[in-house]
Every structure is written in structure tokens, then in C-alpha cells.
Simulated assay, not measured.
Amino acid sequence: MQVEDIHEPDIPVTILTGFLGAGKTTLLNRILSENHNYKIAIIENEFGEENIDTDLIVRSNDEQIVTMSNGCVCCTIRGDLSRVLTDLRHKRDRGEIDFDYVVLETSGVANPGPVAQTFFMDDAVAPFFRLDGVVTVVDALNGGETLDREANARDQVGFADRILLSKCDLVSPEAADEIEARLRRMNARAPIRRVDMGACPVDEVLNITGFNMNDILDVDPSFFVDDHHHHHHNDDIRSFVYETGRAFDPAKLDRYIMSLTNVYGPDLLRYKGVLFMKGTDRRVVFQGVHMLAVSDLMAPWGDVKPSSRIVFIGRNLPEEAIRRGLSTCLADD
């Protein structure tokens, strides 16, 4: 968990995910038809259940890339994601296409984890493309049943930086409240928005800074309230938050996080912490996906009383064992 000076690539990317029928394509058509200030390249997985609205296409001079009526471009993945992104970048550098943002729609049945890791691990991608966030669309009408049945749908919720809840008009307010509470238990750090996909504001999807290194760690206060009014599903994806007012010993915590990710990395979907560390008067922020963890020094604590808060989102994680392990990393008073 070494503190690094991280170069900021110039092309932000949003991963748009959600299970079949949740409303991703409706949202993409909204983005492609709206007059906004972005020149967006949309990478659409060809296994999607619907296609981009062909009425929005103004020309097609390439098997993979088409230009949309508002200046956006759209391409279909027929191969490795790294190659597709590199091809787009080279076409932009040559002046053949123009874009300043990428939206990547995953297949409805896909786990977004490997896609997200591409932006950190692939040397052809990481220096040029910055992962802005993972946006997951959940269907309020059928989402509960889908979450019960499909492990990848639960992974999509766990990886999310923002969750868009669709089709709320087709269910009762009580049913919408219930699935929202379930989603919050699964992912305590992702804001949940109830939206009409066909009228969703673009700023709910783009530039949400889900992967930025900052000292903002918002966890909905209602997450800490045990809600007895809703049925508690036995989801394998759950969140928990560790908090302490004592300082961490940097060496002990570094060793523990390394061992934790080595053992539970495949099941650690997302984690982020704002840390009070012995030996510095500045906040330390760390976050990770699976085994990949990065950290950085942020602003001084100033007049704020130092404390640590870490949120973990993962599959069948041993919560109490992790809490005990973190407590062994606290510095001696």
C-alpha cells in the first residue's frame, strides 16, 4: 500500500452495466440523442439484447465504427477490449474520429470486474484511459428476482459507483423502497438514483469520479440502521464499514492489507478508506479492486478530529475476522 504519485490519463471512461432488460440501451440512446458538451465514443458489446437506435446513425464507413447524429461515435466489440480502445485512440490521434469520453456498455450477463481491471493492469490502456466509474442499472420490477438468481447481477451491484433504479413506476412505492434497501446493504458506498432511463440526466452517468483518489467516503447513514421492515435476502455480496478513532500503524496495516488481498482478492470487489495513520498529520486515502490497491496522501486533518473509516464490498467476506485483523494494526497509544 505504498503512496504513489499517479499520472492522470486524459480520456475518462464510464462502464455501464446492468442485467438484461434493465434499461441500458434506452439510457445509451438517451445519451446519443441528447445535446451535451461531450464527444462520446460508445463501445457497445455485440451480445446486448437490443441495439443502438439506427435512426441516430448518420454514416457508416467502417465495419466497427459509426458516427451518431450529435457527433458521438459508436463501435461494437469484436475482440479484445484493449485492442478496441487502442484502435479508437489511434484513429483519434490521426484525426479520423473525435471524442473526449468513452462509455463502455458491458454485456448484460457480464461481470464488470475484469473490464475495470483492464484500466489499471493493461499497459496499452492505463496511460491513456482513466476509469471514471461503474454505473449499474437495476430494474425495480424484475431486479429482485434477477439478484436472487444471477451471481453476475450481484457482482454488478457490488462494483457500482452509482446505481440507477429503473421502472419504479411499474412497482408500488413499498416494493421500490424494499429493493433500494437491499441494494444499499449490498453496496453502502454507491448513491442510488431512481430514474427514467429515457430522461436520465447525463450527469448521473458521466464524470461521477468513482475511481478518483479523494478523501470523500460517503456512506448512507441509513446503512447503519437495522431495518426490520424489509425481508433480508441472503445475498452473497454485502457491505460493511470499519471505523476507529485510533491511528493505524503504517507497517502493520500495509502487511495486513497485502495478506488480505492475497487471500480474499477475488472476492473483494471494491474497497475504499480514509485513514488516520501514525506519523503523519495528513489523511491517507486508499482504494482497490480485487488485488489492486493504491493509496495517496491527501489534505491535513486541520481542525477535524482524525479517524478512519473503511468500506468493504465483497462476496462472502469474513467480516468479523477482517475487523479483528484491522484492529491488530492499530498503533500503540
Rank of each mutant, 00 (worst) to 15 (best):
D148P: 07
A151Y: 07
N152V: 01
N152Q: 14
A153M: 10
R154C: 06
R154I: 00
R154Q: 15
D155N: 15
D155A: 15
Q156V: 01
G158M: 04
G158N: 07
G158R: 04
G158F: 09
F159C: 03
A160T: 00
D161Q: 04
D161T: 00
R162I: 00
L164K: 10
L164E: 01
L165W: 04
L165F: 05
L165S: 02
S166A: 15
K167T: 00
C168F: 02
C168N: 10
C168I: 13
D169I: 03
D169R: 07
L170V: 00
S172Y: 08
P173N: 08
E174D: 14
D177S: 11
E178Q: 12
E178P: 02
I179F: 11
E180Y: 05
A181T: 02
R182V: 00
M186P: 09
N187D: 10
N187F: 03
N187S: 10
A188W: 12
A188Q: 13
A190R: 03
A190L: 11
A190N: 11
I192E: 08
I192N: 10
I192H: 04
I192A: 09
R193E: 09
R194L: 05
V195N: 03
M197W: 13
M197I: 00
G198W: 06
P201K: 04
P201M: 10
P201C: 06
V202T: 04
V202F: 04
V202Y: 11
D203N: 14
D203L: 03
V205S: 02
N207K: 14
